[in-house]
């Protein structure tokens, strides 16, 4: 890639940093140059986030409709899956899947809820009650 071919497109990095690239100068020697982003990859990233946001919204609805417990929602929102949640909490996978059941969830001890809350970086109260607020990936 020549220096003048390096794309300078909008990306999620804007306002944070620019990326360093190795480009060829007129004299055929490689030197470094900075780029604000490349449309091709920012659209790949945006697509991935569209997918994730759809999943988060579906998870939120399943909690409101009492199909799943808030643990499921916060797992999805934190971009985790059951096996990652297992490594963080120390629960077995089958236990976690049981905790996805709203009925089982209501009977969980505060000690167990605290484990989940710590991983999701929220309070037990938020874990139990915050689900009706509009959702957005923050933190």
């Amino acid at each position: 890639m020549k220096r003048k071919e390096l794309p300078q497109d909008k990306s999620a990095l804007n306002g944070y940093t620019r990326e360093l690239h190795y480009v060829k100068d007129e004299d055929g020697v490689y030197r470094t140059a900075l780029s604000t982003g490349w449309e091709v990859k920012s659209s790949a990233l945006n697509n991935a986030w569209d997918e994730i946001n759809k999943e988060i919204e579906a998870a939120r609805l399943s909690v409101i409709n009492e199909v799943k417990s808030p643990i499921y929602y916060f797992m999805v929102k934190n971009l985790m899956n059951v096996s990652l949640l297992k490594s963080y909490t120390g629960f077995y996978k089958f236990q976690i899947r049981r905790h996805f059941n709203p009925k089982t969830f209501r009977k969980l001890s505060d000690k167990k809820l605290q484990k989940y809350a710590t991983v999701f970086n929220i309070t037990v109260d938020e874990l139990k009650n915050s689900i009706k607020k509009p959702t957005k990936h923050s933190d």
Binding site: E19, Y22, K41, N47
Partner: peptide, 21 residues
């Protein structure tokens, strides 16, 4: 394909970028 592109060109990984390095 989007996943390949992200693995390939995202910060710190790199398919094209690595070849230039």
């Amino acid at each position: 394909l989007g996943q390949i592109v992200r693995m390939q060109e995202e910060i710190g990984t790199g398919g094209g970028g690595f070849r230039y390095i």
